[in-house]
Design a protein around this nucleic acid. Structure first.
Ligand SMILES: NC(=O)c1ccc[n+]([C@@H]2O[C@H](COP(=O)([O-])OP(=O)(O)OC[C@H]3O[C@@H](n4cnc5c(N)ncnc54)[C@H](O)[C@@H]3O)[C@@H](O)[C@H]2O)c1
Ligand SMILES: NC(=O)c1ccc[n+]([C@@H]2O[C@H](COP(=O)([O-])OP(=O)(O)OC[C@H]3O[C@@H](n4cnc5c(N)ncnc54)[C@H](O)[C@@H]3O)[C@@H](O)[C@H]2O)c1
Lengths: 215, 215
DNA sequence: TCACATTTGTGATTTTTGTCACATAGTTAT
DNA sequence: ATAACTATGTGACAAAAATCACAAATGTGA
């Protein structure tokens, strides 16, 4: 079975976003090399990725934006929609809640959890905050399969286990800790600190060798 | 010249963070397989990465935590320290500012920029906010080489060009837009939306095939 | 109609990344 | 000593990802 790579999935998300933008601009067709320029890849890469989901363009006309968009959507999205649980309403958690508030209807953060009694039972950015103790029962009852972890690093593992216990199958983890979970649970780490340190390193390289053209 | 891969750089940052934690726990030595378990890689991977920076452990004792930590630091860090400029003090920008406030001294966010007159000239989370018009002159004068973009997507390209114009050499970009910049400027994208959509996809896979053991 | 330009789809190839496996070296126990 | 362990460093290998390059398809224009 020709399973599809995680990198391709990521790029498909990016393609789709750019397609939406092109459609808003009134375009109806797009070439692989245009999509490549917009997303920072190569034309061949784009074609390979689209091949993976079975959508076929037509030579000379490229891809029909609406069709391709729909093709990606039917590949990536749950037609019933998906709910997301977010744990930890600190600075980051609230920023994310605000950002995704009113987001596309098929993927919505519909439950938040925190230990802080000052946040529990309030509605924040359109999302009800529950006590952490209710996490497992609520995710299980509502069949929530996606979680976001925005709690301090020390709490991350515990929270991850609760999410897993509540039937969550995929987690976006902002805490700088490797989560130890059953193999069948997908974890996408977002490590802001590492990203910054990495950038700092490349800036430093630049200072160490003021000439090189390396990317 | 045996240039070092970006992936290795990223992992070195992660190793270092875990080393610090181990040291705080009073440990003085660590084995490659322990570091691997802590960071989610393999022991061989860890050894390869450390080989890349030239640090050598000793069989049976593994690596000395303080030495290795220092080795990584001297490889990654600017001994003079590095300043970072953050642009866009919205929800996300402020969360990041709060998070890195009082961070390790060698990498500090020391200047923030925004268009909003309500934020300009105030000090937020220990960081002075300047008018966006002053970006290029301030980064240039203070030789700031690292920037973080937290402005709305539509403004990201313009801001990126200003950063580049001010001599910034590496950028962490939170806006969901591919930045078009000279090749010698490093860009690290952090795409939260894609991360969430990707996680949602894998959760969905789970629902589509309730059996598979795939990671 | 036919030469020519443009773009897709994909086999072949290259480049990058990660893993294996084992010689080497340090440690312990007898 | 020396046998038995344990862990590193690294050449050889395997897997994954990206790129190349070209046949096939589509449109253009004389
Ligand atoms: N803020 C950032 O920009 C940023 C950047 C990088 C990483 N992170 C990571 O994201 C996480 C959150 O960061 P933050 O700045 O929002 O922290 P924060 O301290 O502002 O917020 C943490 C929130 O989690 C809640 N919490 C604590 N323990 C909990 C538990 N067991 N169950 C449920 N809720 C709990 C707290 O009540 C608080 O609301 C941290 O792991 C941090 O390392 C944040
Ligand atoms: N908040 C999140 O969790 C989140 C998640 C994913 C991506 N993002 C991305 O991060 C960026 C910021 O998100 P946010 O939620 O903080 O948005 P926000 O609207 O809360 O903040 C944007 C800030 O940028 C400032 N700004 C606007 N134009 C500017 C300019 N030209 N120069 C300087 N400052 C300018 C605004 O005054 C405002 O303070 C966006 O691109 C968003 O797509 C945010």
């Amino acid at each position: 079975m020709p399973s599809i790579s995680g990198k391709t999935i990521g790029r498909l998300c990016v393609y789709r976003r750019q397609l939406q933008r092109l459609r808003d601009e009134g375009k109806s067709n797009v070439y692989s090399h245009q999509l490549a320029a917009l997303t920072g890849g190569s034309a061949a890469q784009v074609r390979r990725d689209l091949m993976a989901i079975g959508y076929r363009g037509t030579p000379y006309h490229g891809y029909r934006i609406d069709e391709l968009s729909g093709s990606i959507a039917s590949f990536l999205d749950d037609p019933d929609g998906q709910e997301v649980a977010l744990v930890g309403l600190g600075n980051l958690g609230r920023a994310i809640l605000a950002y995704f508030d009113g987001w596309r209807p098929h993927l919505t953060i519909t439950a938040a959890f925190d230990v802080d009694p000052g946040k529990v039972d309030r509605v924040i950015h359109g999302c009800k905050c529950y006590a952490i103790a209710k996490l497992e029962s609520i995710t299980r009852r509502r069949k929530i399969a996606v979680g976001v972890i925005c709690v301090p690093a020390r709490e991350a593992q515990t929270v991850a286990e609760k999410l897993a216990g509540g039937g969550v199958k995929a987690i976006v983890n902002f805490a700088p800790r490797r989560l130890h979970l059953p193999d069948d649970i997908y974890v996408e780490d977002i490590d802001v600190t590492t990203a910054l340190e990495k950038a700092a390193f490349f800036a430093l390289e630049h200072k160490r060798q003021p000439d090189s053209k390396a990317k």
